[in-house]
Design a protein around this nucleic acid. Structure first.
Lengths: 309, 309
DNA sequence: CCAAAAGTGTTTCGAGTACACCCATGC
DNA sequence: GCATGGGTGTACTCGAAACACTTTTGG
């Protein structure tokens, strides 16, 4: 048994099955929502499916998403692989979990908000082929019971998203091409779950140059019209500087990929009114909930930044 | 095909195989080393193997490590799951990659340093059962050709380790229970690949209280004896405060787990002599090499911090 | 006495954060 | 005219970073 143990032993058939599960998020009504599909009994589940033969894991994730939501341009990142033998009572299954972000306006097939059965609304918002059937947005603050370990996956995805938001520009993936600074700030607030100082937020965003003003204005209701901005990096999809990713991308680029260029990350450590106000010195309790990552030999997911040198 | 698409479709047999691959690191001679096993032709590979039936992925990783290196107390974290259909020419295989850290003195079965065939040294350093055969430490700055996509995995692991080092206390996993501040600093320098300011480093470490002095001193050669310290969190393996991890840990805790308590993370953003000295204002080029994480729809690994709420 | 690592404080600079008022619009 | 969100500047605090010399030991 303990023998030539080279890279990957030749264990013939009968290993665990591989699945792909995706937690897709969007912002609706200034709140973070996740996409769920009904699942057998009363419960719900994340969209998922087994990768087709010769299909990359990421391609599988994209396909699953496109089928369930119609979403085309999604930002997608691998989250964690769950392989606890008990996670599925029926079969041994390894779930490669991903999380994804879409601007609300880019997920065509998904019907209205939280309304459960009250709004039949058969009107197709958009046209692209094969609309999904039952996928729906659920506010992450009021999720229904989820199948298997999906609750855990969603929670972990949210936490990751929250962290990533602070040193990355992923946040922009949740917005349409043009947006107001108010909208941008509300995205951040919705995900981080705390209020941010308007002036500090705007200053930072502008100073970092990750956002460019357009000539357009948006006027909504009874308030002063707002300047429209766009994400600075969403312009030159080619000729990106910076450290290119190594060969890896799946062959079949089934779906166009939202590209973002190297920009300053945002890094809004904490920027809220009077949070954290401990004793003068060390050992102040952790500002938020998590943040500490009390490392207990990370069998529990616990990742960090990356970019692949 | 696009149908009830609930969580995990019932696709019967014949999916990709699942393997576990582990990049184990240690510090030797003030340099980062990775553990490799010979692989068929001239090349080498990361230790790996298929998870046994009903064995969790983490348990599999631990078993693989124990077999290859004899290491018992390893810090282990999942890295990324590689599922590119072409990554293995022979079969479709999904590799769940982990990375791990050991103090040099805790990996018994591994013989001397880089010396390839020059040092037979049959002396068993320690005793525990079933010594591995051919695993060896290789300095990461001079790795031999690696099989499959293992080079990529190692590179990504190093990058992750580097990032994690800056907001976490993983670094201590690479040291024995007692160490001098000089040793600690050299671990950081070896991984980050840059010099750190001695006074700043020491002050931070002490102020954060993540390290406690012992009464012992270490005297080595012709220099002033150094105070020995220990990692503050390695004391109370029970009764850990902080946000506990959710149910997840594999059933069979085959091997004891190095526990670390919630301490301040370290966070030594950058602390080297005259690096980064751009024009007065914004848009200074990124300090290091990577850091930017130019997000190209992260099909490429690109994770972030976490801890599972 | 020389080489080698251990040990020790102060100053500077900038990012992070707190904080309050006027402006443009629709009703 | 009033309610609603858009828009703007300054001062304080604290952590990050730069920087050089003395001490203890073995040979």
């Amino acid at each position: 048994m303990p023998d030539t143990m080279a890279a990957e032993q030749d264990a013939p058939g009968l290993g665990p099955t591989v699945t792909t599960v995706v937690a897709l998020f969007t912002i609706r009504d200034d709140a973070l929502h996740a996409l769920l599909v009904p699942h057998g009994d009363g419960s719900h589940a994340l969209p998922g499916g087994a990768p087709a033969p010769a299909e990359g894991l990421d391609a599988a994730a994209r396909r699953v998403l496109a089928t369930a939501s119609g979403a085309q341009h999604v930002w997608l990142e691998q989250l964690y692989t769950f392989g606890d033998p008990q996670r599925d009572p029926r079969r041994a299954e390894v779930a490669v979990a991903w999380y994804a972000l879409v601007a609300d306006d880019r997920a065509p097939h998904v019907p209205g908000h939280r309304a459960t059965a009250a709004s039949p609304r058969p009107a197709d918002d958009v046209a692209p082929a094969a609309p999904a059937l039952s996928a729906r947005w659920w506010p992450v603050t009021a999720l229904p019971p989820l199948a298997l370990d999906h609750r855990r996956i969603v929670d972990y995805a949210i936490q990751r998203l929250r962290n990533k938001l602070e040193y990355t520009t992923v946040g922009f993936q949740l917005l349409p091409a043009r947006f107001t600074l108010g909208e941008l700030q509300r995205v951040y607030e919705a995900i981080l779950g705390r209020a941010l100082d308007k002036r500090n937020f705007r200053r930072r965003v502008e100073v970092l140059g990750i956002v460019r003003p357009t000539r357009e204005m948006r006027r909504t209701g009874a308030t002063r019209p707002a300047q429209l901005w766009r994400f600075a990096a969403t312009e030159a999809p080619e000729a990106i500087g910076g450290p290119a990713a190594p060969a890896s991308t799946s062959t079949s680029s089934t779906i166009a990929t939202v590209t973002t260029a190297p920009v300053e990350p945002l890094r809004l450590a904490r920027m809220s009114p009077s949070l954290r106000r401990g004793p003068s010195r060390t050992a102040v309790a952790p500002p938020d909930g998590e943040s500490l990552a009390s490392v207990t030999s990370a069998t529990t997911p616990g990742h960090d930044r990356g970019s692949a040198a």
